[in-house]
Simulated scan of single mutants.
Amino acid sequence: MGGTEHLTVRREGATLVLTLNRPEAKNALSISMLVGLYDGWIEADEDDGVRSIVLTGAGGAFCAGMDLKALAGQGMAGEHLRDRLKADPDLHWKAMLRHHRPRKPVIAAVEGYCVAGGTEILQGTDIRVAGESATFGLFEVRRGLFPIGGSTVRLQRQIPRTHALEMLLTGRPYSAREAADIGLVGHVVADGGALDKALEIAEQINACGPLAVEAVKASVYESAELTETDGLAAELKRGWPIFDTADAKEGARAFAEKRAPDYKRA
């Protein structure tokens, strides 16, 4: 199991929990964090025992985005891993889920700050839970910067365009309740409860057929930009093969026998 000084990895049953772990900087991005994130996504993709992923942050924060001190020339934490970035110039975008989509469902458990790059990473996750006091926002324009992690493309596809433009152009903070109202997050829970709720959702996913879950996720994203006709055709290509799997037969048997299914990913 991987991990770095700023990204911890642990297993909770069939769930891989990735924790952004730089609390003294509100989990601002570092080279160590980006490398750890990338390795975590790949580990989840390659391990058939992992059925879901939870992404969270340590110390009561999710991610405060880019390290502005590093941007100002003061150096970014994790310089000893810079060779990983040189070997794969796209690694940081894959880590932030801009250029990589894990095939397993990703659930974000947000407490505290989830701003700038944190809100950009959030848009690459599938299901989102926030503590009551969580704060969201794309602050880049306030610093004369551009939210280049994908927000000008993705945000308007995930929430109504008028809300996306307001968030992008004002750079103001959003409360968890406001984020839920515009559809950026799906659940708001008591502070400190986001991880537990995310793990609860993960367990519900883990109890389902893994081949079916991954095919459903792939179909949703694959068809998002297609016409309805093309999307329905693509859905059949994804969906029909699932009915021929041993897991599909096991699901039907388990229902008939009134027991929990034992899926083998076959």
Rank of each mutant, 00 (worst) to 15 (best):
D88P: 06
D88C: 07
P89D: 02
D90P: 01
D90M: 13
H92K: 09
W93Q: 15
W93M: 14
K94Y: 07
K94W: 09
A95Y: 03
M96Q: 13
H100P: 00
H100M: 05
H100A: 03
R101P: 01
P102S: 03
R103Y: 05
K104G: 01
K104V: 09
P105H: 05
A109L: 11
V110K: 04
V110W: 03
V110F: 02
E111P: 02
G112W: 12
G112I: 08
V115N: 06
A116T: 14
G118R: 13
G118H: 11
T119V: 05
I121N: 07
L122D: 07
G124L: 09
I127E: 05
R128K: 15
V129A: 02
V129P: 00
A130C: 12
A130L: 11
G131C: 04
G131V: 02
E132S: 14
A134S: 13
F139Q: 09
E140F: 15
E140G: 00
R142V: 07
R143D: 12
R143Q: 14
G144M: 05
G144F: 12
F146D: 06
P147N: 05
G150T: 03
S151W: 05
T152V: 12
V153L: 11
R154K: 14
L155A: 03
L155Y: 01
R157I: 00
I159Q: 10
P160L: 07
T162W: 02
H163G: 01
M167Q: 04
M167L: 09
L168T: 13
L168G: 11
L168M: 13
T170F: 05
T170V: 01
T170M: 07
G171Q: 12
R172Y: 07
P173S: 13
S175Q: 10
A176Q: 03
A176N: 04
E178C: 01
E178H: 12
A179D: 09
A180V: 01
A180W: 09
G183N: 08
G183H: 06
L184D: 10
V185A: 06
V185Q: 10
V185N: 11
G186I: 00
V188L: 02
A190Y: 06
A194L: 04
L199G: 05
E203N: 14
E203D: 15
Q204I: 04
N206P: 05
N206W: 05
A207C: 09
G209V: 00
G209C: 15
P210H: 05
P210E: 08
L211Q: 15
V213K: 00
E214P: 02
V216L: 13
A218T: 07
S219G: 06
V220N: 04
S223Y: 01
S223N: 14
E225N: 12
E225I: 06
T227F: 03
E228I: 03
D230I: 01
D230S: 09
G231I: 11
L232P: 01
